[in-house]
Amino acid sequence: MALPPEVVDQQALERVSKLRLVARTVVESFVSGQHRSVYKGFSVEFAQHREYSRGDEIRHIDWKVFGKSDRLFVKQYEEETNLRAHICLDASGSMRYAGSGGSKFDYARKCAAALAYLMIGQSDGVGLVTFDDRIRTHIPARSTSGHLNTVFKHLADTKADRETNLAPILHDLAGRIRRRGLVVVLSDFFAPTEDLVQALAHLHHRRHEAILMQVLDPREIEFPFDEMYEFRCLERPGVRLRLDAPRVAKLYRERFAAFQDRLREACHRCRFDYVVLPTDRPCDAALAQYLTYRQGR
């Protein structure tokens, strides 16, 4: 399958594909058939009966049990499932920030493509959600190879713009994704942490597993400016701040570290993974390190 070069770092994808994304959850796994799913679906192996309720398909009624007990039961089958993951890509204006090299959005997009490629390669279902202040694209999770093209196409077409409104997005996703799955969020998470903590708790409540991949430019972490700067907001045109950068650098770094600490703490409580991806580090190396770490757990 040929990948659009502007979307996929071919070399990175090849290196990433050698790794296996091993789900931490008990119900889903990277490798097809390696794990039994806890989900009861409609597959070939019978699991148990359940009393008929209105709306169930008539073809699933076990007429034998009805004949014996005069009660309506439907048959449930044990289903063999793969991982169903949703990759959520932040396409807000702040992701356009390109401090020293490429933008955070490009970096995140490459990571998203790499993950999609990897997971579909192991027959896992992959969905794509792009958002800024609202959900712009929601492609349900599928595992077909043709679906990967759809994901790549949407990734290539997506442009970063507008403000971030991450917490409502995560709340929305927690509701939309009915089946338990993996939610990978690629974002800078520049949003109020109180709301984010709530949204993550919502995801956790819906028994989703989440990986928060925070894509950051090194300048956003270090704030290395040493002159008078006028900072112009990437999300809100017209908003600008003029300040003597060295005078606020230390405070900024303190604030930023505290923000990351709160985010890390929230992930820890929900048993989510929190990964910082600096854009000055090749995304293949960063993903490989993380997946190796995850595989080893």
Partner: peptide
């Protein structure tokens, strides 16, 4: 003079600067 010699920079993490200010 220095006020007129500012460097314009497009910035994403505006929320932190706004909080600071």
């Amino acid at each position: 003079f220095q006020r007129n010699r500012v460097i314009t920079h497009e910035w994403g993490a505006m929320m932190f600067l706004e909080e600071l200010l």
